[in-house]
């Protein structure tokens, strides 16, 4: 009896002696905020502040030591044929990369996941390696492969199979082909990894039950596998759309100063060209804000259509 009394007294003393900091850290109300604070801080500092600055700058003309407001002038100037050309290029690029970077990786993942595929670990690694390459290095190599010379690799292959050589960096469709090919080459492996992970979550019992009910491979894929990996598909499509609209490097490494006839001009490239190369930071910011709105709307539509907002049953 004496011992319990002693212990409870001791516990009470200990509680009293806890420092305010201690009780603050252990408070159930505060702790969650404390844990998310690094994230919130980084969002505030690295995203919200630049976002606020960009909005402010889009109404300004910015020169060293001289900043003045110009109202909506920057936004009025954005609506010009070059911007629309950039938007058109970017949109085509987004559509093509979304298709290629979901269909191809899914097919490859299915093949690699199949029990009859041999050396699958080797192929997984091999497909992933381009993602580790610097885009500048990759761009230089692409530029040489598709160089304007009969000796360039791509043109040698073309002549070998009986076609005439192409000026890859000077035609609209070949330029788009180069940018899409580079993006696909780089990101294919990453998406394959996503799909391989998703395929592990497919319930084998369901697959077996379906085959016992007489479903063929295609039906099993459509009615069992596809619904199971749908969240990953939605995720990858969203990411690819956003990355597509943000594309800069592929165009930059192929045409450093500017692309002939704007064939390689993307929206972000246009921001760079106007904001930095032409020293109009305010105008560049206005294009950036418009791009933000476009990505937001497109992503929302896409998420709505794929049912991401519907409540799970």
């Amino acid at each position: 009896m004496q011992l319990t009394q002693f212990l409870s007294r001791r516990r009470a003393q200990k509680a009293e002696s806890r420092s305010p900091l201690f009780s603050f850290l252990y408070s159930r109300k505060i702790a969650p905020y404390l844990f998310v604070s690094p994230f919130i801080l980084s969002v505030l500092v690295l995203y919200l502040y630049p976002f606020y600055s960009a909005i402010q700058m889009s109404f300004q003309r910015v020169l060293p030591g001289q900043v003045f407001y110009v109202g909506l002038e920057n936004y009025e100037r954005v609506m010009n044929p070059i911007f629309f050309r950039a938007l058109q290029n970017t949109s085509i690029y987004v559509v093509l990369t979304v298709i290629l970077l979901t269909v191809l990786p899914l097919m490859l993942a299915l093949i690699l996941n199949h029990r009859l595929t041999r050396w699958s670990n080797f192929f997984r690694a091999a497909i992933f390696i381009p993602a580790l390459t610097s885009v500048v290095v990759a761009g230089t190599i692409f530029r040489l492969i598709f160089g304007e010379s009969d000796q360039a690799l791509a043109n040698q292959v073309l002549s070998f199979i009986g076609f005439s050589p192409l000026d890859w960096r000077y035609e609209a469709w070949t330029a788009m082909f180069l940018m899409v090919a580079m993006a696909t080459w780089r990101w294919l492996g990453v998406n394959v990894i996503y799909f391989l992970a998703a395929l592990q979550t497919v319930n084998n019992d369901l697959t077996e039950a379906a085959s016992m009910d007489g479903a063929n491979a295609l039906q099993r894929f459509r009615h069992v596998t596809l619904p199971a990996i749908k969240p990953i598909i939605v995720f990858l499509v969203t990411i690819t759309i956003i990355n597509g609209f943000r594309m800069f490097e592929e165009s930059y490494v192929l045409w450093e100063s500017s692309s002939p006839g704007y064939i390689g001009l993307t929206v972000v490239r246009y921001i760079y060209r106007e904001g930095i190369q032409n020293n109009a930071l305010g105008f560049g910011a206005a294009v950036g804000i418009i791009l933000l709105a476009i990505i937001f709307v497109v992503s929302m539509i896409q998420l709505y259509l794929t049912g991401a907002f519907k409540k799970e049953h």
Partner: peptide, 19 residues
């Protein structure tokens, strides 16, 4: 001049000389 150079290099010389 930077803008003019860009316009000439991007469009003018491409359409007049290359294509």
């Amino acid at each position: 001049t930077p803008t003019a150079q860009q316009v000439i290099e991007t469009n003018t010389l491409h359409t007049a000389l290359r294509t």
